Deep mutational scan, measured.
Amino acid sequence: YYKILGVDKNASEDEIKKAYRKRALMHHPDRHSGASAEVQKEEEKKFKEVGEAFTILSDPKKKTRYD
């Protein structure tokens, strides 16, 4: 999950949140509406992965379990 968000394992809550926003905007489906179906599908997959990574890393209990 750290790799997906592009943050270090010791990243602060704020750094995780900023990285999530950056990656979410980058891969958001609306940004790729004019792209081919294949690209849209890949970006949607990445967008979901970013969301999942943020869900785990932003919750202290889940993050501890993950680490």
Results as ranks from 00 to 15, higher is better:
A35Y: 04
K22W: 04
L57N: 06
K61E: 15
A24L: 12
L5Y: 04
H28M: 07
Y2T: 05
P60D: 13
F47M: 13
N10H: 13
Y2E: 06
K46P: 01
Q40E: 00
M26G: 10
M26A: 12
K9L: 04
H32T: 07
E15A: 09
K62N: 07
E43W: 00
V50Q: 05
H27D: 05
E15V: 08
P29E: 07
Q40I: 07
S36T: 12
A19M: 05
E42A: 09
K22C: 12
L57Q: 06
T64L: 15
G51L: 13
K9A: 11
E43S: 10
V7G: 06
L25R: 14
D14S: 10
G51R: 15
T55P: 00
A53C: 00
K45L: 11
V39K: 13
L25Q: 14
I16W: 00
H32E: 07
R21N: 15
E44Y: 05
E38A: 13
V7Q: 04
E15D: 13
Q40D: 03
K61Q: 15
K9D: 12
G6L: 00
E42G: 09
P60E: 07
S33N: 08
V50S: 06
E38S: 12
Y20T: 07
K18F: 02
E52C: 02
G51P: 03
K45H: 04
L5H: 04
E42V: 12
H32Q: 03
I4D: 14
T55D: 14
G51F: 14
K22T: 14
E49C: 02
E52A: 07
R21W: 13
E49Q: 13
E43A: 10
P60L: 11
Q40V: 15
K41N: 07
S36M: 08
P29D: 07
R23K: 14
E42H: 12
E49M: 11
T55M: 14
G6S: 03
Y1F: 00
K18Y: 09
I56T: 14
E42T: 11
L25E: 14
D67G: 06
E49T: 05
H28Y: 00
I4E: 11
E38R: 10
K3P: 01
D59Q: 00
D8K: 05
D8Q: 09
T55R: 15
E38H: 04
V50T: 05
I56N: 12
P60R: 08
H32S: 05
Y2H: 03
D14K: 08
D30V: 09
Y1G: 07
R31T: 09
H28T: 04
D8F: 01
D59L: 01
E13K: 12
K45R: 15
K45E: 09
H32F: 12
A24P: 02
K22A: 13
K61Y: 11
S58W: 00
V39M: 07
M26F: 04
S58I: 05
E13C: 10
S36C: 09
E38K: 11
K18M: 10
K46Q: 07
K3W: 03
A35T: 08
K18N: 14
G51A: 15
N10V: 04
A35W: 01
H28S: 07
H32M: 04
K63Y: 02
E42D: 07
A11T: 04
H27C: 07
S36F: 02
V50E: 06
K61P: 09
V50N: 06
A11G: 02
K18V: 10
E13M: 14
F54V: 10
T64E: 15
D30Y: 03
P60A: 11
L25V: 10
Q40P: 05
A19F: 00
V39Y: 07
E52S: 03
K41D: 07
K62V: 08
K62W: 04
N10S: 09
D59M: 00
K45W: 00
K62Q: 15
M26V: 09
M26Q: 14
L57Y: 01
F47G: 07
Y1S: 03
G34Q: 14
E42R: 12
A53T: 02
K41G: 04
S36L: 06
L25A: 11
S36R: 02
D14F: 07
E13H: 09
P60V: 07
G34E: 14
F54T: 09
K9S: 14
S58P: 01
A11Q: 02
G34S: 11
A24M: 11
K48E: 04
S58T: 14
K63R: 15
Y66H: 03
I56D: 04
A11F: 08
G34H: 14
K46W: 01
G51T: 15
R21D: 14
E43D: 01
D14V: 09
D8N: 12
K17R: 14
D59K: 09
I56C: 15
T55A: 15
V50G: 03
K9V: 12
F47R: 04
I4T: 09
G34C: 10
K63M: 06
V7R: 00
R65D: 15
Y66A: 14
Y20I: 09
Y66I: 10
D59E: 02
A19P: 02
D67T: 00
E38Y: 03
E42Q: 13
K17H: 12
E52G: 07
K46C: 03
H28W: 03
K61W: 09
G51V: 15
R31K: 10
G6I: 00
P29H: 05
D30R: 09
G6Q: 07
I56Y: 09
S58L: 04
A37M: 09
I16C: 01
R23F: 10
R31C: 06
E15R: 00
G51Q: 15
E42L: 09
Y2M: 05
Q40L: 11
A35N: 07
E13F: 13
E52W: 00
S33K: 13
A37E: 12
R31Y: 04
D30I: 10
A37F: 05
K17E: 13
A24T: 11
S33E: 12
S33P: 04
S58F: 03
N10A: 04
A19E: 09
K9I: 08
E38G: 06
S36K: 13
G34V: 01
A35V: 10
G6F: 00
E38D: 11
I56K: 09
E13N: 13
E15L: 00
S12D: 03
A24W: 12
E52T: 09
T55N: 14
E49I: 02
I56H: 08
F54K: 12
N10Y: 07
I16T: 05
S36Q: 08
K22D: 10
L5E: 11
A37G: 10
R23W: 07
L5G: 03
R31G: 06
E13A: 15
R65A: 15
E42F: 13
K63N: 03
G6R: 01
L5T: 08
K18D: 15
H32W: 14
E52L: 04
R65L: 14
A11E: 03
I16D: 03
S58H: 04
K62S: 11
S33D: 04
K41A: 12
L25T: 13
I4Y: 01
V50P: 05
N10W: 03
Y2P: 03
R23T: 11
D30S: 12
G51N: 15
G6Y: 00
A11W: 00
L5M: 09
P29Y: 07
E42W: 03
N10D: 12
A24C: 13
